[in-house]
Design a protein around this nucleic acid. Sequence first.
DNA 1: AGAGGTACCTGGCAGC
DNA 2: TGCTGCCAGGTACCTC
Length: 271
Amino acid sequence: MPELPEIETIRRGLTPHLVGHTIKRAAVYQHALRWPIPATLAKTLAGQTIRSLRRRAKYLLIDLDQGTLIIHLGMSGRLYLLKHASKHGTHDHCEFFLEDDHVLRFTDPRRFGAILWTTAAANEHPLLASLGPEPLEKNFSADYLWRITRKRTVAIKLFIMTNQHVVGIGNIYAAESLFAAGISPLKPAGELTHSQCTHLVAAIRNVLRAAIRAGGTTLKDFVNGDGKPGYFSQQLHVYGRAAQPCIRCHTLLTSIAMGQRSTVYCAHCQK
DNA sequence: AGAGGTACCTGGCAGC
DNA sequence: TGCTGCCAGGTACCTC
């Protein structure tokens, strides 16, 4: 499932193929995503040139002449380039045909994704306006995490997965970061020491950066026939390893549900 | 304001 | 083999 590193990988992979190119026409085959694709989108985009690709949280922002496409891949979304137009399938919901014959295709079997259009500054869009800091930027610091967690009783895993606090940390990277920092996912956020905040911020950064680096190695496969951008399989230490031995202490990993999400951790290494 | 729960959707898999 | 039923997950939004 696309998390922040995947979106960043997609942004970097698509940028050289899209920037400066013009959308000849667009086609929407399925409007019913998380929110409806605007009915007039295809008409709006025709003839506009792509200026830049940005990322905010897990949103990909494609700047055009007259506004910005806001794209979210949800759970199962994929965005990839085809060298030539080809017949679209059941889960291909939207296509952007470029003047150089490439086709940017949005595919999303579970339809948790979104394609929206705004003519205002994208960061002012309601979906983006109240997002917290980017985990890889300076304003996501130990001091910041320490300050906003004070007196908060919610479990730290749920806390860091909340977008107003810090963006882009989904279930997988939350579990991995907490393991790397040696902090129990169940620990009330307000009980983290300043030192633990330091470790957690560093762990989140390291895990995300490693995943982005791993994604970079698959970029050469980004434009291909089968439409698989080649999501990297990161080395996961706890996620998906319930009841398997901890890589550090060999204690069997514990699996619990938190906020209706599976959570795997080492009860020995994570306090 | 904080905490907790719900909905959306469908492929894949376990169980019968 | 074929059916049913559950699970996975991101995140806006609802309720208490």
